[in-house]
Design a protein around this nucleic acid. Structure first.
Lengths: 163, 163
DNA sequence: GGCAATATGTCAACAAAGCTGACGTATTTT
DNA sequence: AAAATACGTCAGCTTTGTTGACATATTGCC
């Protein structure tokens, strides 16, 4: 298709640049999740448990449907993981006051503790990468990732504030 | 732990900044993979098939063991997916000339075609994000993701060239 | 030449985490 | 009173990872 042999071919550079981006995401995400995955395996949990614990910790008293909007999985898939976390005492459900159909979720002390341990390795990994890359690079990292994600979730990152 | 109420607390800002990074990665990766996943489901394949097709396309005549080093999965997991791709005519295996124990992998025309279709959506997504964010942001994006991944794979991104 | 190491493949069993479809209950909204 | 919503559950299926054991072909070394 594109004649790769032509020396200073902008199309080739673009193709190579875009493929590198794809691979950067793959390798970075693979390593980003690997440490927490290993810790979770010890506890008999998986990455899905971490995601639930993380976002419940991040948004205390979140409703089940809002959590589903974040995770973009089916309620049946969430249910299996969430039931285990409730059963094992990491999360408690509490009936909503305004809308009593809701089962609002929050971490127990035990849940907060495991969240801290699990996320700590990821935080340190990011912190090191941020420190080594510098503030300008961090701004670029944010801008590109915001551009990659679908618009609806971008607003979660407005002004360093929670939605 | 850290007193969140203190107004200009650098530790709080740092904590918020790091959590946003974690979430940026989660949301961006979730959406980055979703389109190709949907196309794959049509063909009866999954994300694992895409990864194999992608990296075989990227590194023609790659050995099975080198592919395993990239994917970091077990040979049994790879074998299942790879066998299907060979059976269905997307990949051919060819005995190595220097080391005849090797089964070097390359895409067939059919494999090249599906790789192009699958990766096209991802390339366009990245291209748009790159274009909107600008060259400096792209440099920052690369620097931070390189810092997040484990060192051994960083050399794959030296000088826009393949290893 | 012989033997250990390597590259690859395969069988079997299992687990995590996603999916669809169907159905039920409590509560709110219209 | 009826419809819509929030949530939960049962049942079955798929993809993709895991461990462990074992087999074959080939290479490298002493």
């Amino acid at each position: 298709m594109t004649d790769k042999k032509t020396g200073a071919n902008p199309l080739f550079l673009r193709e190579e640049e875009l493929r590198q981006a794809i691979e950067l995401l793959f390798f970075a995400y693979r390593d980003f999740t690997s440490e927490a995955d290993a810790m979770l395996a010890h506890q008999g949990f998986g990455r899905a448990h971490h995601r639930v614990i993380y976002f419940v910790g991040r948004h205390p008293m979140i409703s089940v449907s809002d959590l589903l909007l974040i995770l973009k999985i089916t309620k049946q898939s969430l249910s299996r993981v969430l039931s285990q976390l409730v059963r094992d005492g990491y999360i408690v459900q509490q009936q909503g006051t305004e809308d009593r159909r809701q089962r609002l979720l929050r971490l127990t002390d035990k849940g907060v503790a495991i969240e801290r341990d699990l996320t700590e390795a990821q935080r340190q990994r990011i912190a090191r990468a941020y420190r080594e890359a510098g503030a300008d690079a961090v701004a670029g990292f944010r801008a590109v990732l915001l551009g990659i994600m679908e618009p609806p979730d971008r607003s979660r990152f407005d002004r360093g504030r929670e939605t």
